[in-house]
Computed example of a mutant assay.
Amino acid sequence: MTTLKDTPTTLMFHAEMLPPIADSVGDAVQQSLPPAAPHGELDSYSTFLASRPPVFETCAVEEILSMADLAPQLHLHIVHLSATECIPILRQARKKGINITAETCFHYLGLASDDIEDGDTRHKCCPPIRSQTNQDRLWNEIADAEDGCIKTIVSDHSPCTPELKLLPPRFQTAHQADNRRPSLHQIDSGIDVTLPEEAIQDAKAALEKQGDFFAAWGGISSVGLGLPILHTAAAARLAAGEKAPSIVDIVRMCSQATAKQVGLAHRKGGIRAGMDADICVFDDEDVWTLRAGDMRWKNRCSPWEGHRFRGRVKETWVRGQKVFELGGVNAGFVGGKPVGQAIVERRME
């Protein structure tokens, strides 16, 4: 923080840490298991959730704020905030003039621990997806456009194969099953899978850990789904008489505010003369269900598969050039080659 204190940049934190031990526990603490150790079945989502309680996030936020005076002008930012217990802490800090903001993610606003089946490791991420009550409080915070501490909403896209997710077969689609390594049944059945002994042992070990939330890769695949996720959930909340941001607020938090955060507000995040002509054509009435074939990333493994959405992206334009089209003769990514530009802004020596 002292190194960056006079630079026009943002210092971002993954805010999770083990809470300090408040009471003396004697020398036995040196041999005891850490607070994060699982207590329960490893394929139970409740076991995983209990291993990363909200206090992990609140302790980290408080630790960050305790050092804020080292760099009073530096923008501090909490990435992928999950626990709403952090919100009053951040609000109070902002009232004191500390330049700190937070973001949350599509999966924290659209998925809840109440609905996660045991073994469905597609839902593993850190911090974890928490309860429906926690999710409701997140929505209330982002609906408070003026005073809220959550200023941006992001995907935190972290794709991986079903193999790395240790996903049990019952949660795999046919596409994923075709691309995973041979099963233990195949290995032991006499089928020639031409694998070296080391790969066979790895496959057996992976099969034994299927559904293990502690061994599986952590991360959610959702890039490109932000608008459908948020628009669907917000519309449902408004229909139920609950607080939710408008589509304009959603665009602000997902586009305008993120562009400003990374120093690109002079060319990204808006539609006006002099800006890059980055445009998304969104049909807010299209009702559809996400299938593996609709995922626009390589390894099609996501907890969003099977979810029914209202609203769908029909076209995407980058600097005035169409790069994606849904349906039609030229369906999918169009143009044949990447058109993005590398943005390397030197902010410090």
Rank of each mutant, 00 (worst) to 15 (best):
residue 209 K to N: 14
residue 84 T to Q: 08
residue 212 D to L: 14
residue 23 D to A: 10
residue 218 G to S: 15
residue 238 L to A: 11
residue 2 T to F: 08
residue 267 R to Y: 00
residue 234 A to P: 04
residue 18 L to W: 07
residue 315 E to W: 15
residue 341 Q to E: 15
residue 118 D to C: 03
residue 165 K to G: 12
residue 171 F to N: 04
residue 304 W to A: 13
residue 52 R to S: 09
residue 76 L to F: 04
residue 54 P to L: 11
residue 311 G to D: 02
residue 87 I to C: 08
residue 246 S to L: 09
residue 54 P to A: 12
residue 179 N to P: 02
residue 110 G to W: 00
residue 158 S to H: 06
residue 279 I to M: 12
residue 297 W to S: 11
residue 37 A to G: 04
residue 292 A to Q: 11
residue 76 L to S: 11
residue 64 I to R: 03
residue 237 R to S: 04
residue 114 D to L: 05
residue 186 Q to H: 08
residue 317 W to C: 12
residue 292 A to Y: 03
residue 66 S to I: 05
residue 235 A to L: 15
residue 186 Q to W: 04
residue 94 R to N: 07
residue 12 M to F: 10
residue 146 E to I: 07
residue 229 I to K: 02
residue 65 L to M: 10
residue 11 L to W: 00
residue 90 L to W: 01
residue 342 A to C: 15
residue 199 A to P: 00
residue 182 P to Q: 04
residue 297 W to R: 05
residue 305 E to S: 06
residue 201 Q to V: 01
residue 184 L to F: 00
residue 235 A to E: 14
residue 187 I to Q: 00
residue 230 L to Q: 00
residue 1 M to Q: 04
residue 313 V to A: 11
residue 91 R to G: 11
residue 134 N to H: 02
residue 85 E to Q: 11
residue 5 K to T: 09
residue 307 H to Y: 08
residue 133 T to R: 14
residue 101 T to D: 10
residue 209 K to L: 15
residue 223 V to R: 06
residue 38 P to S: 08
residue 227 L to F: 15
residue 69 D to M: 07
residue 3 T to K: 09
residue 169 P to E: 12
residue 172 Q to A: 06
residue 177 A to I: 11
residue 46 S to D: 15
residue 276 D to F: 13
residue 151 K to W: 09
residue 136 D to R: 11
residue 38 P to W: 09
residue 291 R to D: 13
residue 28 A to I: 06
residue 107 H to E: 05
residue 292 A to D: 14
residue 106 F to G: 00
residue 218 G to V: 06
residue 330 N to W: 09
residue 290 L to A: 05
residue 290 L to W: 03
residue 76 L to C: 04
residue 302 S to P: 07
residue 228 P to L: 14
residue 296 R to I: 05
residue 93 A to E: 07
residue 255 S to G: 10
residue 237 R to M: 03
residue 183 S to K: 08
residue 243 K to V: 02
residue 72 P to E: 05
residue 53 P to T: 06
residue 118 D to I: 00
residue 29 V to L: 06
residue 180 R to M: 09
residue 190 G to K: 03
residue 299 N to C: 11
residue 332 G to V: 12
residue 114 D to K: 06
residue 174 A to S: 15
residue 114 D to V: 02
residue 316 T to L: 12
residue 316 T to N: 10
residue 197 E to I: 10
residue 15 A to G: 01
residue 127 P to V: 14
residue 210 Q to H: 07
residue 113 S to K: 05
residue 303 P to C: 09
residue 231 H to P: 02
residue 38 P to R: 08
residue 157 H to P: 05
residue 159 P to C: 12
residue 331 A to F: 08
residue 70 L to K: 13
residue 221 S to G: 13
residue 30 Q to W: 12
residue 165 K to F: 04
residue 59 C to T: 15
residue 113 S to A: 15
residue 121 T to W: 01
residue 167 L to D: 01
residue 145 A to G: 06
residue 82 S to G: 06
residue 201 Q to S: 08
residue 7 T to M: 14
residue 312 R to W: 11
residue 171 F to D: 00
